[in-house]
Design a protein around this nucleic acid. Structure first.
Lengths: 217, 217
DNA sequence: GGCAAGCCGTACCGTACGTTACGGTTCGGC
DNA sequence: GCCGAACCGTAACGTACGGTACGGCTTGCC
């Protein structure tokens, strides 16, 4: 079910040099996709292949370390759920929506998801699990407390936070991620994202907002 | 923008033997993912590599032909938009929703999307475009007339059919496709899909249903 | 029957790339 | 100044696989 936290947090056992190497690998991954070669990484990072193999074992190890390294960088500040009214709840949801749209439309996310999807086919490693854990599941972990708080405050009405979250997710992401992954050139400007975040939030509130207002029943 | 219809319809210029070969390639693609080899396809299809190369040019040509061959098989009967009332509209939407969930959760769709996503990274071919064109865009083309008919019949209220469609898409698919592509084991039983289709349809109607009923403005 | 076309099976070629090995350099510790 | 460890750059190895060539078999046509 993949809800297992995938590995020990590696972000602190890495030396600065190793982080620099992984950054180089990450840039190369964004530029070239999965067909990046060990030689190219070594050249870009100005390190020897011997070092690459000593540090990361093999190519899959390097890929995994790169994905985890990126994942360790995207920890976002959780939203505080206190003093909640409709305005602040709305703002929080819009914030989550636009953050998420910005993430999934970023070159880095697209590249990472592409290699993870590719590797999920032949399950040698668990890149897919890592990406999922630090993407969709991390989002759920951060958003659910907000939803629960909204329910506590009488602003939201739902029975299952997971279900509510998944609807919010669908309203926000729609077809964006799959289109981007498949190579559709979807221009997401800051304005578009903002508008989509507002729309998704309004739709979510229409579906799950507590019915104390003029939208009777 | 990818809205170009990708290629001539190839489904009729193929001999039976060629279709059989592509079926074998498709099965292999589902089993092994993108790292299927020409030799494996030849062996599975009981044909020579020479024939493979004569018919399809190169490996990418074979992959493209395979994807298009599968795409040509999934033409679905369009729904009739006549005599529309709320019950039949609801049934149509539920039908679309469960059809779509069945498609994206099928082994074939997952395998095809995986290779297309992988290839979208290094854009040598347009597998991504083909998959998108026969998946998400084909769905839109079939669903939009239903939505328009619903609006004509006073059952739906929206200004832009594309926007309405995308919301429906999001409510139906949610996180299912990306999770499956990333290797999450998401068990979608017939019952689950049916329930999700009903839920998505109800949510869509709540958002876009004409406000002539007790959920007054 | 003779023949050409199409195809199967397989051997073969060339290359790209993962992986390993090694000489040379830097650097911290003594 | 000397030593070993870590690392850089590069050369070398092995293999997997895309692509090609070729001999043999079937089939349809004369």
């Amino acid at each position: 079910m993949l809800h297992i936290v995938p590995d020990i947090d590696t972000s602190e056992t890495l030396t600065e040099r190793q982080k620099a190497v992984l950054d180089a690998a990450l840039r190369l991954l964004v530029e070239e996709g999965d067909q990046l070669t060990m030689t190219a990484v070594a050249r870009r990072a100005s390190c020897s292949k011997e070092t690459l193999y000593k540090w990361f074992g093999d190519r899959d190890g390097l890929l995994t370390a790169t994905v985890q390294w990126q994942a360790s960088k995207v920890r976002v500040a959780p939203v505080d759920g206190k003093g909640l009214d409709l305005a602040s709840l709305t703002a929080s949801l819009e914030r989550f929506a636009s953050d998420w749209l910005n993430v999934i439309s970023s070159d880095t996310s697209i590249a990472l998801n592409r290699v993870a999807v590719g590797h999920a086919g032949s399950g040698k490693d668990n890149l897919g699990a890592v990406v999922l854990e630090n993407g969709r599941f991390a989002l759920a972990r951060r958003l659910k407390p907000v939803l629960e708080a909204g329910r506590q405050a009488g602003l939201l009405d739902f029975t299952d936070a997971e279900t509510a979250f998944r609807s919010f997710f669908g309203l926000v992401a729609r077809d964006v991620q799959i289109r981007l992954l498949l190579g559709d050139r979807l221009e997401l400007t800051e304005a578009t994202i903002g508008g989509d975040a507002v729309r998704a939030t309004q739709q979510f509130l229409a579906l799950f907002g507590a019915k104390t207002r003029l939208k009777g029943l």
